[in-house]
Design a protein around this nucleic acid. Structure first.
Lengths: 141, 141
DNA sequence: GGTATATGGTTAGCATACTAACTATATCCT
DNA sequence: AGGATATAGTTAGTATGCTAACCATATACC
């Protein structure tokens, strides 16, 4: 007999929701959402990436990536330019305002991760992350 | 320095997405989505529950629960009736067609859970579930 | 009894996710 | 060169999440 509340999918999803809520709680005064934060985080790692490259690495499909980036552009946090080398490609660059946020926002994600880990040993955290990677791999192969 | 790809939130979310995709792959020929499946699963456990009770236990807010249930009603899988004892409350009941699905659909969730667990020991699965519950609790308390 | 408060549900509006169809550009291949 | 194929992005349409405002009903309490 299948018990929804005890199933891995349910527990996994619930934990992911809790972490997203905790992050968005901190982002709300910046007028940002978790997916918008994720795109910014990619650009802090490397500026000028294309929507499809960022979308693939964050598991956003093309229209989703387009929409999130457009809303970041409306807030003047990023700027879209056409790549002159390959005119199919859009390159997304941080504005000064977008780069400024890097001083404060990554902190929030670290805080939320710390909260999630409360009461766990370092060994447990390693184990947990390894198994989450394994679940992903189990559906890729 | 914060590394998105190594963060718990990212890994957790990615694993949850993989499981949702695998479930929806199996549901698509029934014209159902994962959230619709979840509401049906609650009704198979106990018929006649209200949208807000099911919503709370599945972490859907009120408008989300209303929408999902309405779409299930359009597909004639459930029927909404007003509770005569407390006329604020809606009671959602499975139709014959909705009950019929219980023969096939819970199987899918079991399959997806099995896939996720591939290559893990029973002890590891217990550990993983316990830690996912702990993450949830860490944000509740 | 009558008013304040709380609860269940709906509606409107916006931000993700997703599919399918489309445009524009680039590459392959003969 | 020119046609088939592939890739990057957009648009349209639907389903999920979410907030805020609202209506109807129930409960508390004076």
């Amino acid at each position: 007999m299948f018990r929804l509340d005890e199933s891995l999918g349910f527990l996994l999803n619930r934990a992911a929701i809790a972490m997203r809520w905790a992050l968005e709680e901190r982002l709300v005064r910046y007028g940002l959402t978790a997916p918008q934060w994720a795109i910014l985080a990619r650009l802090w790692e490397e500026d000028g990436q294309s929507p499809s490259v960022m979308g693939k690495s964050l598991h956003f499909d093309k229209p989703t990536a387009t929409g999130i980036i457009d809303r970041l552009e409306q807030k003047v946090l990023v700027k879209k330019t056409r790549d002159p080398e390959d005119r199919r490609v859009i390159r997304v660059y941080l504005t000064g305002k977008g780069r400024e946020l890097q001083k404060h926002l990554p902190q929030f994600a670290s805080e939320v991760n710390q909260m999630a880990f409360r009461g766990m040993k370092n060994r447990d955290i390693k184990f947990l992350k390894a198994h989450l990677r394994k679940i992903w791999d189990n559906f890729r192969m």
